[in-house]
Nucleic acid binder design. Structure first.
Lengths: 208, 208
DNA sequence: TTCCTCGGCTAACGTTGTTAGCTGCCAGTA
DNA sequence: TACTGGCAGCTAACAACGTTAGCCGAGGAA
């Protein structure tokens, strides 16, 4: 299983033309020194292997063979490290969902979007969980990144209300799956399909 | 605004007959001493007023005029206090959604369920957030309580996959609303209606 | 050579959950 | 009445957390 992550395999924007309503990825200034990159790399490794509780400044520093206070030469706070982690995760998820819009396929755009969204969120499970903690400093994310990452849901429905409903469905499915909230033995594929079909019909029938 | 909460206004099971597929509320042994009740009451007050970060053992103890270690005479850990808080919240939400199934109304059962779910989750916003933190000790909740609280979604759809999809939609809407993840000025009522309509059609049309 | 910045370090602070161990009170019982 | 036991408080303390202050060596620029 190869890690599917930003800095390790930098996500590049495909040079395809935009669909109606599709946003372009916002420019995010990447001026990472090698040490900063190593720090978020170590943080991600710990986060994915042992979960959010294990992500402490001392553990991150340990992995790099330095002391915790030295991390503050590179990041202003632990929150800033988390923001860097989530920024990469959002970029990767957004990249995947945007490109799912353009891939041809036998299934509907909604189904393709949902499949891509689920796959990427599960692949970045720990980061996704981190981003949905209420203590996460969402307001320090790069401007426009969240909007861009959510944009495919607008493209695929063509209606703001339906887009938010579809996004909520997808987000809810992912969160409940990652937190193990469905009873054991649940057929989650069937639940995803059922939701996809409901929203496909809602878009094809028109709003009112 | 009167607080809508368990111990303050104990939720009683209505003596109506059950709908097809509807579960009865599990018996949860309530052997609360007066002090334990005071503790979870103080905890809830802090949580609702100042959020999860303010919910510390010392703050809870302060409100009762005692020292933090004394709390351990009544609860084994902070997690246990959180579990008690969420147990009450789940009971109240479940009570409301179950009774929404039985209320007659001009709107569909799905719409009534969603309206009740949203209202109760927003009323218990802080507790709902607490319950969705990944660090929450879900496995220590009373057996069957979560299943019973989610049961109305099965009753109203009649299909496991569709029920999980509908629950995911509702959960996603609530979580994103509570975390302020929708752009300012979003018409959330419209999003709820759009989702409700999509699932109404999905149930009436049959599964495949 | 001198000076400044970068990126390490140690020591320490305040806060968190939690444990150990002491004590006073009060009910029950010989 | 006297003894006893447990309930429920207390203080002191610990380890781990994020974070700050302040020191210092290396290396490049003037």
């Amino acid at each position: 299983m190869t890690p599917l992550f930003g800095p390790r395999a930098p996500a590049t924007q495909l040079a395809t033309s935009l669909l109606p309503g599709e946003l372009r990825r916002p420019e995010v200034p990447v001026e990472k020194s090698s040490r900063t990159a190593e720090i978020i790399d170590a943080a991600r490794t710990i986060l994915e292997a042992e979960g959010a509780d294990a992500l402490t400044m001392r553990r991150i520093a340990d992995r790099l063979g330095i002391q915790a206070p030295s991390l503050y030469k590179h990041f202003a706070s632990k929150k800033a490290i988390e923001v860097a982690l989530v920024t990469d995760g959002l970029a990767e998820i957004g990249e995947a969902t945007h490109s799912a819009l353009h891939e041809p396929g036998s299934s509907s755009p909604i189904a393709r979007l949902l499949v891509a969204y689920r796959a990427l969120c599960v692949a970045n499970a720990a980061v996704y969980r981190l981003a949905t903690q209420s203590s996460f400093a969402r307001d320090e994310l790069p401007a426009g990144l969240e909007e861009w990452a959510g944009n495919p849901f607008y493209v695929v429905t063509g209606d703001p209300a339906l887009a938010q409903a579809l996004w909520s469905f997808a987000h809810g499915m992912v969160v409940l799956e990652l937190d193990g909230r469905y009873p054991a033995g649940s057929d989650l594929d069937a639940a995803w399909r059922a939701g996809a079909r409901a929203f496909e019909r809602a878009t094809s029938t028109g709003d009112l």
